[in-house]
Design a protein around this nucleic acid. Structure first.
Lengths: 192, 192
DNA sequence: TAGATTTCTAAGCAATTGTTTAGATATAGG
DNA sequence: CCTATATCTAAACAATTGCTTAGAAATCTA
């Protein structure tokens, strides 16, 4: 009997994610979301309840996005040091593209909202746990492949590379490509 | 003939800086600034023109603050590797104190506002140039003292440690003290 | 002490914020 | 082809935003 939705919740959520990614949480108004998502405020609230819940869903969507388009190589079963090296040098080089100068949505969120909201904080922590777990696995594989020393302290190194990636997100907005390259190169050289 | 100001512009600016530091630019309202600075909106606008200009002055004030209270050791003429090591391990350990979980105001600003405003962007860049120059000098001294190899590429290493410090600001909000320690330890070990 | 001049108080401004609501519109099942 | 029910449009909501203003209060010079 009911009327059917004229939009795909998954599609409009992806648009919302990009707005939050570009502008940050506070600077994104519901009016902007309306335009960018292509649906009315009523529809936003009926699908996502309120702005904060939409933001949290956007962070999750961002997680899906990077899994598929950014960390896909690192998430492959046999990815090791070569892939990590390629990934880091590659993201350092991508600086010129404006899409990269947005940095990481989750790093931006951690910086903007700090620990001011519990739900958002736990979402942020969940994301970084995922990144660290991914790094652990990559480093473990690298050891098994003999690319790095079997004495490598994977726990410490995964914390290190997570820190480097967080720094990279900020640095991508403030450093030129050469400096970014230096930063990443030294981070990598250290483990060889 | 005129009436005299009942507040010290320098004092109230310091209070404004702390509000921006804790809450970020967008999340800080002029009403909050009124309360925290202890003066009326009229006085805020008569002394600082508008919110953005007050924010920029707050960033500069933050620069003074860290020069005197955070980087004072590193800024001493003969500071080298020992001081850099002490500084990094120390800030990694200070995590439990809530004052530290605010991260760095300028990193937060870079993340929140990206390149959305030219004046603010150039203020952010100026700050990071100062940090990198400070690091260069410290590393140069470390070479002269024989603490690190004379072959050290100071340009690259200063970019690296700047990136580490930017990462540290984000990580201080998301990592536990042990992980922070691991992050910093590896960053330091690499140069020895 | 008088008066010129600035600072302060506090109310008010229009614009924007997140969120809600009333009524028109469309659609699937009987 | 109805009609129940959900979706949409668009206007409105109170609260808050950054900023301004009119008038009262205070102070230094003369």
């Amino acid at each position: 009997m009911p009327r059917s939705k004229s939009y795909d919740e998954n599609m409009v959520l992806e648009h919302a994610m990009h707005v939050f990614w570009s502008k940050g949480y506070k600077a994104t108004s519901v009016r902007m979301l309306e335009k960018e998502m292509g649906i009315n405020q009523f529809s936003i609230y009926s699908s996502f309840i309120n702005k904060k819940k939409l933001f949290i869903k956007s962070i999750r969507k961002y997680g899906e996005h990077v899994r598929q388009n950014v960390y896909n190589i690192l998430l492959q079963e046999n990815s090791g040091m070569k892939e990590l090296e390629f990934f880091l040098l590659n993201t350092a080089q991508k600086k010129r593209e404006p899409a990269t100068s947005r940095g990481c949505l989750v790093v931006n969120t951690a910086a903007e909202l700090g620990g001011s909201d519990d739900e958002i904080t736990s979402e942020v922590n969940g994301y970084f746990n995922f990144i660290r777990d991914m790094l652990k696995k990559v480093l473990q594989t690298a050891v098994e492949k003999g690319e790095i020393s079997p004495d490598t302290d994977i726990e410490k190194q995964s914390a290190f590379f997570l820190g480097v990636m967080q720094g990279l997100s900020v640095a991508s907005k403030t450093m030129d490509p050469d400096q970014l390259n230096d930063f990443v190169s030294i981070a990598l050289k250290q483990i060889k």
